[in-house]
Every structure is written in structure tokens, then in C-alpha cells.
């Protein structure tokens, strides 16, 4: 499944600062084809900013992003999307004034390779992905009339309709209840299998991240503090400290011993 020799996304020392604040500070990581990478960290750690930097929504102050061997550092978001590197938004960005179906349709009309020219062909793809995420019943609803979890599903469907190779999923499970989280995790695993997707998975819900990721990258104050398997990350003192603070971290470590 995971092709260890095939690095599909190579992030090299990217940085972004807002004034004096270093939101992302020389972060590097590699993603191999077929992997699910968890990107975690406390609030304000720079997870969303990294997504924005990789997909071109924000300009980098330094560093490079290589995707499938090409340098995409200076490309615009739409160019990056067209070569198959896409993302969902933590704060959903539905296309207002359109139906749920039309939102997904736009994804399949443009998306990778700028690909489907024919509306009726595009609609077929749309039906498939909407069935997959369980939104088909609500296809004719205006986006203003559906709930937030549905909008999150719609964003996921929209991104799948774009036929991507690498997807950054930015908190697609926020606001879901526990059983919906289970469902959503199954869904992510399933699309990875079916579509040979590579996923960078940003999430607050630890259980979800631990259960789903092949590898996890931990960020804190804009810096990468740890990278490894879920087990390695869970046991890493720096990570525990970042999440719980110094004092509790010591206690936890003691308890573990």
C-alpha cells in the first residue's frame, strides 16, 4: 500500500511569520505515496498555516515545496489543485448560493487536470462521491440550509470529486459526535484504499488521529517537535509537555514508568 521509495510530497524548511510571530518556523517533512500522515499540535501550533503554505493560499517567507518532483513553491492555488494537491478548509468555505450538488460539481469540473469538460459526465462523478460520503439525499439543498457536519462532508465530497492524489484534510471531524467520528474514520480509510489517496490529516480528536495515521508529525509554536509512529509520538516527552505543560508531563512520565 505505502510505497516507501516514492516521496510524493517533500516540504523543505518552509517558514511564515506574521510580524514578530513565527507561525511556521523552518518545518520540513516528507509524505510517501499512499500514506496517511497525522498533523497534530495544540491550538496555534501552525497546522492550518502549513496547509495554506503548501497549497499556495499563503505566500511563504522561505522554503520550498516539491510535489511529485516539481517545485510548486511559486504556483497559485488553482495551479496546485490542477496537479492533484488539494485541501479542505477548517472553517468551511461552501460556494454560497449554490446547491450541495453544484458545489461538488464545481470540484469535478475543475480539479485535477482541469479535467471534465462535459457537464453530464461530471454529474456522474458527483453522484458517486455524494453517495460515498452519504450526502446524496441532500443534493438539492442550498448550502445555506444544511448543518455544519453536512458542510464538512460536502467539502470532503468536493475534494474527492477533484480526483486528487494528495489531500490535506483540515479538521473534517470538528463538530461531529462520537459515532459520526467512527463513521468518518472508516470513510477516510475506505477512500484511501479505493482511490490510492495520500492524506495529510489535521485533527484535534486524538483518538481519530492515533487510529488512522501511519505516521504523525507534531507541531508546537510553529516548529516540528516530533515525528514518528502513533506509539512513538504518544510516548514522546516533548509532545506530552506541549499538550499538558511541564508539570503534568513529569507526572505522566512517572506514571508510565
Amino acid at each position: 500500500m505505502i510505497d516507501n521509495n516514492n516521496v510524493i510530497l517533500d516540504v523543505r524548511a518552509i517558514s511564515r511569520h506574521f510580524g514578530a510571530l513565527k507561525a511556521v518556523d523552518r518545518v520540513s517533512f516528507q509524505v510517501r505515496k499512499g500514506e496517511i500522515i497525522g498533523l497534530i499540535g495544540p491550538n496555534g501550533a501552525g497546522k492550518t498555516t502549513i496547509t495554506n503554505l503548501v497549497t499556495g493560499d499563503l505566500k511563504k517567507n522561505a522554503g520550498e515545496v516539491h510535489y511529485k518532483g516539481t517545485d510548486v513553491s511559486s504556483m497559485q492555488p488553482f495551479q496546485i489543485a490542477r496537479i492533484g494537491l488539494t485541501r479542505t478548509y477548517q472553517i468551511v468555505k461552501p460556494l454560497q448560493g449554490m446547491t450541495v450538488e453544484e458545489n461538488v460539481l464545481v470540484g469535478s469540473l475543475y480539479g485535477r487536470g482541469n479535467r471534465i469538460n462535459d457537464l453530464s459526465n461530471a454529474r456522474k462523478t458527483v453522484h458517486d462521491v455524494m453517495e460515498l460520503v452519504g450526502l446524496y439525499k441532500k443534493k438539492d439543498f442550498m448550502v445555506s440550509d444544511v448543518t455544519l457536519p453536512d458542510l464538512k462532508r460536502m467539502e470532503f465530497a468536493r475534494v474527492l470529486a477533484m480526483d486528487p492524489e494528495v489531500v490535506f484534510l483540515d479538521e473534517v471531524m470538528a463538530g461531529l459526535n462520537p459515532s459520526e467520528v467512527e463513521e468518518s474514520m472508516e470513510l477516510v480509510k475506505k477512500v484511501r484504499e479505493d482511490r490510492q489517496l495520500t492524506i495529510v490529516y489535521i485533527e484535534h480528536i486524538m483518538k481519530a488521529v492515533m487510529g488512522i495515521s501511519d505516521r504523525i508529525i507534531v507541531l508546537h509554536h510553529g516548529k516540528k517537535i516530533c515525528e514518528g509512529s502513533p506509539q512513538e509520538v504518544r510516548d514522546n516527552p516533548a509532545v506530552i509537555e506541549a499538550y499538558l505543560g511541564k508539570k503534568y508531563a513529569k507526572e505522566v512520565m512517572k506514571a508510565n514508568e
Binding site: P77, A81, L95, V106, L109, R112
Partner: peptide, 25 residues
Amino acid sequence: NSRFGFAIRSIKANEDAANSMGINT
């Protein structure tokens, strides 16, 4: 009502989202 029309309407709806979906805004 064409494919191009969806690009036009996406710009009104949310220009940033349109761009990240592959539309040359």
C-alpha cells in the same frame, strides 16, 4: 449554464475556495 459559468458563479460564491478548486479566477 456551461462549465465556464460554474467558474463565474463560484467566484461570486467564494473566490478563495474557487481558486483552490482549480479555477483560474
